[in-house]
């Protein structure tokens, strides 16, 4: 073993770095749908956070625990309710909201258990997605939405404007929105309508109001 926090070759995804940049040192972090624990590992190494993960796939959980991370097997739809109010400084839901059964409920739980919820989504309003359906007549497949319609776990896709509207309806405050390209690089776009057309993913920082 080369140390449980040994760096991974190639580093971590750019969008995860954007998330990490928003998190303060030593914070209590819950990463919901943490996959193999790349973000948690990065945060533990660089920011000494007290990090926990929830992951649906048992293989992902076992890999994370074997790397010395605190990860449990669980489901964003059913297991967030266990946590007490304000248990974490940050709850992270990265590219996972669209795969939950009840996204509204999940968002409400996230802002209940954490002071800040950092949520990233693939933007279904991106022009390529719109064109693919409008002109091609086929269900869109992109870098971020790589599976065909019959195999995708993404059952609740939305656009940036959709998520903005849902937050407004649910009394969830939007502290910050960042628009990202497919590589996770921040795009400077001034209008929401433009961003909804041009950015392939978006990062929201949400709070209970």
């Amino acid at each position: 073993m080369t140390g449980f926090l040994a760096g991974r070759p190639g580093g971590i995804r750019v969008d995860l770095l954007v998330i990490a940049s928003l998190i303060s040192d030593g914070a209590r972090v819950l990463d919901v749908g943490c996959g193999d624990g790349a973000l948690l590992e990065h945060l533990t190494r660089t920011k000494s956070v007290d990090g926990r993960g929830i992951e649906l796939s048992q293989a992902g959980v076992n890999a994370g625990v074997a790397r010395g991370l605190s990860v449990i097997q669980g489901d964003a739809d059913t297991d967030l309710k266990d946590y007490p109010d304000g248990a974490f400084d940050y709850a992270v839901l990265s590219q996972t909201l669209q795969a939950t059964r009840n996204p509204k409920r999940v968002l409400e739980q996230l802002v209940r258990i954490a002071r800040n919820a950092i949520v990233t989504i693939p933007n279904f309003g991106h022009w390529r997605v719109r064109l693919s359906l409008a002109l091609g007549g086929r269900m869109p497949m992109t870098d971020l939405l790589a599976e065909p319609w019959y195999a995708t776990p993404n059952i609740h896709l939305c656009t940036i404007r959709d998520l903005t509207a849902l937050c407004r309806e649910s009394a969830i405050g939007i502290e910050q929105v960042r628009f990202l390209d497919s590589q996770g690089q921040t795009m400077s776009l001034r209008s929401l309508r433009f961003a909804n057309l041009l950015s392939e993913q978006a990062l929201f920082v949400l709070r209970r109001t």
């Binding site: 959980v61 994370g64 625990v65 990860v71 449990i72 669980g74 266990d82 946590y83």
Partner: peptide, 18 residues
Amino acid sequence: IVHALNAEAANVSFVEIE
């Protein structure tokens, strides 16, 4: 056990081994 520990926001890992 895990649910009870989560209710206390405890630091917990949980693995089920096949």
